[in-house]
Design a protein around this nucleic acid. Structure first.
Lengths: 116, 116, 116, 116
DNA sequence: GTGGTCTAGACCACT
DNA sequence: GTGGTCTAGACCACG
């Protein structure tokens, strides 16, 4: 899997974080599994350790991983993270639908299109 | 209507562009109506003319307005723009749903939540 | 006010963040007031812009400030931040008292001492 | 009792030290009782002997244990340690309350919340 | 000029 | 070896 796409406008650290978020939510990375070390991942992705560090700090703030000093970063359990993510997605879709309604696109029209 | 919200993380030019996009799609601004001049709008919004210009350029690229040299900027017709926008929204929602399915959230679960 | 204390074991960015958190909660910095720019504060504190940036990012995540791209950082309103902070303090004290009870120090003994 | 919690952000040596501090203050470990050897504890906790040694050094500095060269580590009496600990706790809580007062949270408000 | 991101390289605490 | 922090200096988007 290619993690970094330089064409992508999003910052590198965000692409890295998103990639791991996805792997954790999909269950590819399991609870308490060790993440690649900051340094090794930096080399693998041909990027700077600080950039990887920033991604990991973000993932830790979001509750996806936890850090053990001197040992490394490890994956957190994903059950309630999945619930949180689902909630976010629902809110996101609702927001888009409401914006659409504001410009006169009817909700049922959209839902019909989506269900196709 | 307040056009610029500084709490909003989006860049100013984008907020301005979105605001006019909305007004055009809603029909508040009608076909061939003249847009405020870059300078006057910059003063009204207490912002930089460069910022307004950037918003107008963006709106022109998106097909919402057209420029007549020496005369100003004018609104394009909104019929097919509305269709285009609706298409974009449908694609956007579909993309989100597909991403959700990738991490194991079922489509019908989401749709049930949305229709609440 | 001296913001950075090199004897202090806490990282510099945290000391900077805490200092501003305090100023905002005390009302010394008011809603929508502009924060010092990253660069100017870095010079003033004889530290690196990245360090100040890290402090500001932290303050933004905690809801103390907001960023306007190209303009600077500004103070958020502190009303509900104050509530949040008070909640945190209460939880912190309760935690300490419970730990004390575990080793046989009675709650009322402690409270009597505190009220002196 | 689980001594090490890797989810906990505190360093391992500190968690080990705290755990023994608690056992001594609770009286589970009695005066002059022998502590587990550095090596055996390291094996039991699946951690590094250096880490256990660091915890023991810390406990010795705090007066919780004493070392007899060639024989091992032994528990100190806990009577005056308890007094010292209680003192520390009171000071800690007072410090927090004073900080709260600095940002305008009233002492009696806090005490009311705590007693709930 | 302002913040946001990134690189290169360093030092420290912890294991 | 591992993460966390910091410095010095650079480039980009935004206004």
């Amino acid at each position: 899997m290619e993690i970094i796409n330089y064409q992508d406008a999003r910052p590198i650290y965000e692409q890295i974080a998103d990639s791991f978020e996805l792997q954790i939510l999909k269950g590819i990375l399991q609870k308490d599994e060790q993440m690649p070390s900051v340094r090794s991942l930096a080399i693998e992705l041909s990027t700077n350790p600080n950039t990887v560090q920033k991604a990991y700090t973000y993932l830790e703030n979001q509750g996806y991983i936890y850090t053990v000093k001197g040992r490394g970063n490890f994956v957190n359990g994903s059950e309630h993270l999945m619930e949180k993510k689902k909630e976010e997605i629902v809110i996101e879709i609702r927001r888009i639908i409401e914006e659409a309604e504001e410009i006169g696109i009817r909700r049922d029209e959209l839902l019909k299109e989506i269900q196709k």
